[in-house]
């Protein structure tokens, strides 16, 4: 019951205790001011576009006025899941991603192992040389491969011509065009696997390795039964990361093959760009495809985060968090 002019006793007590602890508390209460702008920017850049994409995907879109006009329920999703072109784009993305991931992992592991075994003193220089393809712009990578694979002036065709006396038109058959894209992707994304595996190999517990050697494990048995199981979480993280990288690729398909021949190498990113912006301007259709791609990615990303949170990615325990005790 409130009496006018007389604050309630509880409030008075709270007032007093706040006054007593003022200097420490006031700073800690305002501590969110510094990181807040970052969180706001991130929230603005992710939530509105996401919900806007959902909204767009449920409507028909007027391409002249750039506004959504008519609510059509899940019709756009139906179109995506029943049109051969969009299904092909999803399938092609899967094919490219699977192959790139597989090759990147195999090459990455082999190179990391070679460096660690045979040239550990030069590791920084070797790593940085092997890393170069990764820090080169995807545009330059595509440009490189178009120079190398040019049917008339490219060195690969010119050398191969000496053996086969056949000109290989790399981007003219769906199979070869896909492999060209995969090659480009592998060249650019393997460095990541090399680096991760190399750090993984470096941080393996030496006692366990010694014990296995004493027990007589050697060669491939050693690799398969000891090294790889010990690096399990790194392998999982690398596989998922490579897969995500490859499934979002746009540049090689756009620049090397332009999705061709026909629509054979049209990846999902290229499909969305073409259908939504370049050709017909069916923005809602592209938005629906984007939402589907997003759902797939979120599933993969969730597994990834859960794995990295298993905290021994490099054998490091999470540090005790400041203030955890009084939370």
């Amino acid at each position: 019951m409130k009496v006018e002019g007389q604050p309630a006793p509880v409030a008075l007590g709270a007032e007093r205790s706040r006054a007593r602890r003022a200097p420490r508390r006031s700073i800690d209460e305002r501590r969110w001011i510094v990181p807040l702008p970052g969180f706001i920017l991130l929230a603005l850049a992710t939530f509105p576009p996401f919900f806007y994409a959902l909204y767009l995907s449920l409507f028909n879109f007027d391409n002249q006025a750039k506004i959504a006009t008519q609510f059509v329920w899940l019709q756009n999703y139906g179109t995506i899941l029943s049109t051969s072109r969009s299904l092909h784009a999803f399938g092609e993305t899967l094919v490219i991603s699977f192959q790139s991931t597989l090759f990147s992992i195999v090459f990455g592991f082999a190179i990391a192992l070679l460096i660690q075994r045979y040239a550990p003193r030069l590791d920084t220089w070797l790593l940085i040389l092997f890393l170069l393809p990764m820090i080169i712009s995807p545009v330059v990578a595509a440009l490189n491969f178009s120079l190398l694979l040019n049917t008339l002036y490219g060195p690969i065709d010119q050398v191969l011509y000496g053996f086969t006396h056949n000109v290989i038109a790399w981007t003219d058959t769906p199979f070869l065009a896909t492999e060209v894209i995969v090659m480009n992707q592998v060249w650019q994304s393997t460095p990541f696997a090399i680096l991760l595996f190399y750090s993984g190999l470096q941080s393996l517990p030496t006692e366990a390795l010694e014990a296995a050697r004493v027990d007589g494990a050697q060669g491939f048995t050693f690799l398969w039964l000891i090294t790889i199981p010990l690096m399990r979480s790194i392998v999982i993280v690398t596989v998922l990361f490579e897969f995500l990288l490859a499934s979002a690729q746009f540049t090689p398909t756009q620049l090397l093959t332009s999705g061709g021949p026909g629509n054979a190498t049209e990846s999902i990113a290229l499909y969305i760009y073409r259908v939504g912006i370049a050709e017909t301007g069916s923005i809602s259709l592209a938005a629906a495809a984007g939402v589907i791609a997003l759902i797939v990615t979120v599933i993969i990303a969730t597994i990834w985060v859960k794995t990295t949170k298993a905290k021994d990615l490099y054998g490091i325990e999470r540090d005790a968090v400041w203030g955890e005790a009084d939370a």
Partner: peptide, 25 residues
């Protein structure tokens, strides 16, 4: 934390359409 990390993994092709329309507006 999960939200921040997951934004980093958002596929660019899923964001490009809303970004494009929003940027026009």
């Amino acid at each position: 934390e999960f939200w921040v990390i997951s934004t980093r993994m958002l596929p660019p092709e899923a964001l490009i359409i809303p970004y494009y329309v929003i940027m026009i507006h």
